[in-house]
Write a protein that binds this DNA or RNA. Structure first.
Lengths: 176, 176
DNA sequence: CATCCTGTTCATTTATATTTGAACAAATTG
DNA sequence: CAATTTGTTCAAATATAAATGAACAGGATG
């Protein structure tokens, strides 16, 4: 019986969907978010899912996403997992339906802070550790090479410091 | 005759190069820059080359890079081309040697502004174009859907504005 | 409690990105 | 100007990332 309602809605909307079940507006949104998530190093499927949820007025279940995006079960499940993990997407209750229905959270900052926490911060940390190790090696260098290497190391420390100074600012800027 | 000098230097330094021709310090620098360039979406080979040049006191020719990094001719040539293209590396004159000798430029901002110019800016531009197209589509939507879609579009405009505001600031911060 | 429904996991397949090396071009040398 | 050196390009090979779909787990449903 819910199937009937869904069929009706689907048929009605189909008139505005030239490209295989997606409206022009949806396609633009999906493209936009694909290129956005790729910039952050995430798989395309994550962008597709978020893009469609962003464009959709109603919450969508995993199966609806699957069918409209022509995407495998696995990719949809994984993509939603990622999006849930940093709160870019959340489930809403749908009476009399035990599937999870998803809506997009509109805060850009969800993506930004996930990226900072999962990508930038770890890189800065491992960079700092490496610089520390390089300082150890410096001591064991013959004095003629030590000076040149020391100049380079101080450059690295300067960059690290800059990166560390930037992160909190960036976060504040994007979340605000 | 230059070959003899190089041989001597190579043999002398070999004592401090446990891992196949590279000193511990060099390996750390290379690792550091590999992860840095990967973050910017560049191939690993670019990080290897820059890392070794960064660590080296003397300018290195393409063949020297090739051999020490055990990298193909093609990859070394391509990598240097990329690095040259945004000024992360430059050639220095070496008397009586017709090969190009490369040194690392120490300005982090070279990477940063290349990334902004080649990645961020184009994404922002294409995003802006897409938002404009979406506004066109909006007009052709039935009025009941237009409102919901309008709210979403205004979110997108807000993000775009934020991105555009951030870029100049970011650039200034990193170049300074 | 057997069956159906929903979603997850993961080995395999497919797609994409990177590297290799041989062919080539250009410049230099004797 | 033939031979050599240096570097580039690009088609093919390789390595890496992502998507697929079948097997599975758990929870609802009758």
């Amino acid at each position: 019986m819910p199937a009937k309602i869904q069929n009706f809605a689907t048929r009605k909307a189909a008139a505005r969907r030239p490209s295989g079940g997606l409206s022009a507006l949806e396609v633009e949104a999906i493209d936009l978010f694909i290129s956005f998530v790729r910039l952050l190093g995430m798989p395309k499927s994550v962008g597709e899912i978020y893009g469609l949820l962003f464009a959709s007025a109603e919450p969508l279940a995993l199966d609806a996403l699957r069918h409209r995006l022509r995407m495998s079960k696995g990719a949809a499940s994984q993509g939603l997992k990622v999006l849930r993990s940093f709160g870019a997407v959340r489930t809403v209750y749908a009476a009399g339906d035990r599937r999870d229905h998803y809506v997009a959270d509109f805060e850009l900052s969800k993506f930004a802070s996930a990226f900072i926490k999962e990508e930038l911060q770890p890189h800065l940390d491992s960079g700092a550790a490496r610089i520390a190790r390089m300082e150890q090696h410096l001591d064991r260098l013959p004095k003629d090479e030590r000076e040149a290497a020391g100049v380079r190391l101080s450059k690295l420390r300067h960059w690290k410091q800059k990166g560390e100074a930037m992160l909190p600012w960036l976060l504040k800027f994007l979340v605000a």
